[in-house]
Design a protein around this nucleic acid. Structure first.
Lengths: 189, 189
DNA sequence: ACCTAAAAGCTATCCCTTTGCGTTAGCCGA
DNA sequence: TCGGCTAACGCAAAGGGATAGCTTTTAGGT
């Protein structure tokens, strides 16, 4: 869903998409996102602007697609021996990446040009998959008392994302640890 | 912070702002947000486009300001006699308003044109103020065991907003009630 | 190898955006 | 109350991004 549905997934369409995505990443690194325009990206990608407008609609949807790609986790959660350590470490890394300047920008872009919510849903799916890996590992170890996937999304991931988007202050590794503790131990507020 | 800082808060500046905001609301109701353009809003407001560009920067920042206004709660949380009933009722209403088509659009707009996060922070402040009212009322009644304001934001408000933004499916009054129960009773996931 | 249709190229036009300059109007001190 | 100061607005022109019709190319199917 990240790339628009292509009736013809192979050949030229795929090359154009790759070329345009690469152009966005290059120009973003070179000149910053504020300087990005559709004609500029098109020129770098070696296509005409109308191609981009037809495939993506506007610049925001294109940036949304690229942002989702960059938000895809590139590594599996590390194995630290038990659920608590695994979840704590993953949460701290998640908070670090997402609350960075670049992370915030990608999150905003992903949400931005996203009429049907497909791209945003993909972001959540990435986090859910990572959480599932951690929980599945705990299950294999025979650990009991592991929370449900939904509980982790609601009470660990959601508070972090909410603060990133709505409350730019007060995020720390300590906060991440507290969220995990509370979810695992069930302490009331 | 919702309106841009005005070195001269009174007189013409205030009139222009009110006129422009009104024009946005009118045109949005008449023709839908997709049809909104800066020149169109300017014409309806009786100002020139350059005025809007100078004051707000671009259309998204203007829409962000208007969206924050519309997200401001217009009533105090109702009093149902005890904390649990108050918080449950408020949460259900909050979910209803925020997850509606209009609510989602306003949230997106508020987040969208918001370079410094001030508008998004205002949205969170609105919710925090409402929660504070509910908690203060419980305190006045002498109820103990009330959660901290932060706990409610993290474990009731945040999951709702996360799902609205990232997981468009699976929101219901029942879900809102579960979040409140879990926060008040401290059940683990 | 041909035929078909989807996708990209091309071009012209529209109008949004930006900018410089002149004018107005609100605020403040005398 | 009056006059000066300055921020804010109106105006107009230029530049460029967005959009649409039409043509050309390319991939996939027969």
């Amino acid at each position: 869903m990240s790339p628009k549905p292509m009736a013809r997934p192979g050949g030229r369409s795929a090359r154009v998409q790759a070329s345009v995505h690469a152009a966005v990443r290059e120009l973003e690194a070179e000149q910053g996102r504020a300087a990005l325009t559709v004609p500029l990206v098109a020129a770098r990608a070696g296509v005409t602007p109308s191609t981009i407008y037809r495939r993506w609609g506007d610049l925001q949807e294109l940036l949304s697609d690229v942002a989702v790609e960059r938000l895809r986790p590139d590594t599996e959660p590390a194995d630290h021996g038990d659920l608590r350590a695994d979840l704590t470490a993953w949460t701290e890394q998640f908070l670090d990446e997402m609350s960075s300047t670049a992370g915030r920008a990608y999150i905003r872009d992903a949400l931005l040009g996203d009429p049907d919510g497909g791209n945003a849903g993909q972001c959540s799916a990435y986090a859910a998959a990572q959480v599932d890996l951690v929980l599945a590992r705990a299950h294999e170890r025979g650990e009991d008392g592991a929370p449900a996937r939904e509980a982790v999304l609601d009470h660990v991931v959601a508070p972090i994302m909410y603060r990133i988007l709505f409350r730019p202050e007060g995020l720390s590794a300590e906060y991440a640890r507290e969220l995990v503790e509370r979810t695992l131990d069930g302490l009331p507020g």
